[in-house]
Lab assay of single mutants.
Amino acid sequence: RSVMTEEYKVPDGMVGFIIGRGGEQISRIQQESGCKIQIAPDSGGLPERSCMLTGTPESVQSAKRLLDQIVE
Rank of each mutant, 00 (worst) to 15 (best):
K9S: 05
G20A: 08
G34H: 09
R49L: 03
S2E: 13
E6I: 08
E6P: 01
G20M: 03
G13V: 02
G22Y: 04
K9T: 06
R1W: 02
K36D: 12
T54M: 14
S59K: 10
I26C: 05
L67M: 05
M14S: 11
R65Y: 09
L46Q: 14
K36W: 04
I37V: 10
M14Q: 06
Q31H: 08
V10T: 02
D12M: 08
R1Y: 14
S50R: 13
S27H: 13
E72M: 13
R65L: 12
Q69R: 13
I29F: 04
G44Y: 10
E32K: 07
G16E: 14
G22R: 13
C51T: 06
P11Q: 05
S62H: 13
C35H: 00
Q38C: 13
L46V: 08
I29Y: 02
Q61W: 08
Q31N: 13
I19E: 15
I29Q: 00
Q38W: 09
G22Q: 13
E24N: 03
R65P: 01
S62L: 13
F17L: 13
I18W: 05
Q25H: 12
R49N: 06
Y8W: 08
L66I: 10
Q25I: 09
I39E: 02
E72Q: 15
V15C: 04
Q31W: 03
E24D: 08
Y8V: 08
E24A: 11
L67Y: 00
G45M: 06
T5L: 05
Q31I: 09
G45A: 09
A40P: 12
K64N: 02
G23P: 03
R65C: 11
S33P: 00
G23L: 03
S62A: 11
A63E: 00
Q61C: 14
R28C: 05
Q61M: 13
G13L: 07
K64D: 01
E7W: 09
G20Y: 02
E72T: 15
I29N: 01
A40W: 05
P11D: 09
Q38R: 11
P11T: 04
G44S: 14
S50A: 09
S43E: 10
I18P: 02
Q69W: 02
S33V: 02
I39L: 07
G55C: 00
G34K: 07
I29C: 03
A63C: 15
M14A: 13
E24R: 13
G44Q: 12
S27Q: 15
E6G: 06
K36G: 09
I26D: 01
Q25S: 12
E6L: 11
A63S: 02
C51H: 01
M14I: 10
I39N: 01
R65E: 12
K9C: 05
V60M: 06
S50V: 12
A40E: 12
R65K: 13
S50W: 03
I26Q: 06
I39W: 05
S33G: 01
Q38G: 06
I70M: 12
G16A: 12
M4I: 15
Q25N: 05
D42Q: 09
K64C: 04
S50D: 12
I29S: 01
R28P: 01
C51M: 15
E6N: 03
E48L: 14
Q38L: 10
L66K: 10
G23A: 10
I19M: 07
K9R: 09
L66N: 05
I39D: 01
S62K: 14
E24V: 07
G13T: 15
G20P: 02
G22L: 05
G16V: 05
D12E: 14
Q61G: 14
S43W: 04
V3S: 06
S27R: 14
R28G: 06
D68Q: 09
D68T: 11
S59V: 05
I70E: 14
G23K: 09
K36R: 11
T56P: 10
Y8A: 02
E58C: 03
